[in-house]
Computed example of a mutant assay.
Amino acid sequence: MQTNQAKRAVIILSGGLDSTTCMGIAQAEGYDLFPITFDYGQRHKVELENARQVAAHYGVADRHKVISLGFLKEFGGSALTDESIDVPDMTKEQDKSESEVPVTYVPGRNLLFLSIATSYAEVTGAEAVYIGVNALDYSGYPDCRPEFIHKVEEVMALATRVGVEGVPMRIETPLSEWTKAQIIREGMRLNVPYHLTTSCYNGQKEACGVCDSCRLRLKGFAEAGEKDPIPYI
């Protein structure tokens, strides 16, 4: 790890509400920000431009890395990477049980994200990797659970030079136990630029308002007593 420097953190930045809130929290906690964004062939590519705008807002556009993981689109298996699988309309009655993993789950996504972010963190001398996973409003994704994060953190300690030298990096999940309303309230307190974010899985300039991600976002703003600043169809 480098010495005589401000503490540093890598932020996995999608351009969405949760990851942008992580940017605000990490900044408030005194970290120099090193955002990293992944282009994995997602149908909502508009979020990549949102991530660039968020990085610019925080004055770290020069450090912002956008990494191509296009093979995830080639693999498919998710409504977010395979155009033949429809993004569910959550305003219609859904048959999916609460224990069933939704079709918007992207196999291996967060495992890959955290592995690559760990590499960026070690090179830049960062002591933490922030990721906006949530164990409450997490849509049933297995790679958002605390058990998953803890196991990856254990692997990071074994697989990195800083880890074997006794100063392992941490995975910070500040939103893990918060409702969407709590996340939004904290973001508003920190002046997080929600107007620059998107949450819509359908990837339109105006959010659809009916996919699972839009519904969670709208519900969160309503419960927080705030107005969502982005446009909806």
Rank of each mutant, 00 (worst) to 15 (best):
Q2N: 08
K7G: 06
R8M: 15
I11T: 03
I11Q: 02
G15T: 08
M23D: 13
G30R: 00
Y31L: 03
Y31I: 04
L33N: 02
L33S: 03
I36H: 03
F38K: 09
H44W: 03
V46F: 07
A51D: 00
Q53V: 14
A55N: 14
Y58P: 13
V60F: 13
A61S: 11
D62G: 06
R63Q: 10
K65I: 07
I67V: 09
I67M: 15
F71Q: 10
F71R: 07
L80I: 13
T81R: 05
E83G: 09
P88S: 05
S97L: 14
E98R: 12
V103K: 12
Y105E: 09
G108C: 12
F113W: 07
F113M: 04
S115V: 09
A121R: 08
A121F: 09
G125T: 04
V129W: 02
V133I: 12
P146D: 11
E147I: 09
V155R: 04
M156D: 06
A157N: 03
L158T: 15
R161Q: 12
G163R: 04
E172K: 15
S176G: 10
R185K: 11
G187F: 01
R189Y: 08
L196K: 11
T198R: 07
T198S: 14
Y201L: 09
K205C: 13
L218F: 01
K227D: 07
D228V: 06
P229D: 11
